[in-house]
């Protein structure tokens, strides 16, 4: 049985782009289409399904807890139905869905998706940023998406970390050259900006996640010095 699996539901330009970007991150990728005429793309054979399918069988081939389903059907109603079908069968499956608008995104969240990307709003945000804040847009784009030396990373506080039990505001971050700590996420809370009043009095505990920006070697150095490690798993994490 494969360790991690990406399940792509829907065969269209969105799934092709998702496939391009995530295929290296998963041991196995499975693509499903509603249409019989879709048969193959690159090295992947396209499976077929219809919305009345019972997904119980899928459990035999993949490890549900380590899998992520990407629901990108073009019809919103079908996409909502697919998400609700998957969620009703697998409570632990991580589901990411694409919606055209925020109204549709709410329905998909109600149907059980862990994360929904509202296409119009997200694209509009990016276009506005491109025009109004071109410099910050380029910098953030480089940090997030490009293969640049500057990286954003999630550092999970381990048992041995000397930050443990320290108050966030009492730490002098300037000791860690080349690193900027942007936010902290407690296991039970949403990520909080480093200077927010909540984060200010937050006592760092094991399992907390720090979001840092820096050059790769500086991040590695930071990890070593604080005795924590990078956190990359997305599974079972929801907003």
């Amino acid at each position: 049985m494969s360790d991690t699996t990406a399940l792509l539901f829907g065969f269209n330009n969105y799934s092709i782009e998702i496939l391009k970007n995530v295929e290296n991150q998963y041991d196995n990728v499975k693509i499903y289409s509603l249409h019989e005429e879709d048969t193959k793309i690159d090295n992947y054979t396209i499976g077929h399904f219809d919305l009345s399918d019972n997904w119980q069988k899928m459990e035999d081939d993949i490890n549900i807890e380590k899998s992520v389903a990407f629901c990108v059907l073009e019809e919103t109603a079908e996409n909502v139905f697919l998400v609700i079908s998957l969620r009703s069968t697998y409570e632990d499956l991580s589901i990411i869905a694409v919606a055209s608008h925020k109204e549709d995104a709410n329905k998909l969240l109600m149907a059980g998706a862990n994360k929904v990307i509202p296409l119009v709003e997200t694209t509009a945000d990016i276009i506005t940023n491109m025009l109004e804040n071109p410099i910050s847009n380029d910098v953030l784009h480089e940090i997030l998406y490009e293969e640049s030396a500057l990286k954003i990373a999630q550092i999970k506080i381990g048992k041995e970390s000397h930050f443990k039990d320290e108050e966030l505001s009492s730490i002098d971050w300037s000791h860690y050259n080349g690193i900027i700590v942007l936010s902290v996420m407690h296991k039970d809370m949403k990520s909080e900006f480093i200077y927010s009043s909540k984060a200010k009095h937050h006592v760092i505990q094991e399992e907390d996640v720090l979001v840092v920006v820096g050059y790769e070697k500086d991040i590695q150095e930071f990890e070593k010095r604080i005795g924590s490690h990078r956190y990359v798993s997305w599974n079972n994490w929801s907003w």
Binding site: K20, N21, Q25, V68, T122, I126, L144, Q154
Partner: peptide
């Protein structure tokens, strides 16, 4: 479509970091 691909990649790799940057934008 390309944006969705890039976003998904970051989302599955570093969800907290993605959310932080997304919030900033």
């Amino acid at each position: 479509q390309e944006l969705i691909g890039l976003i998904t990649k970051e989302l599955v790799g570093q969800p907290v970091a993605f959310e932080v940057i997304h919030e900033l934008r």
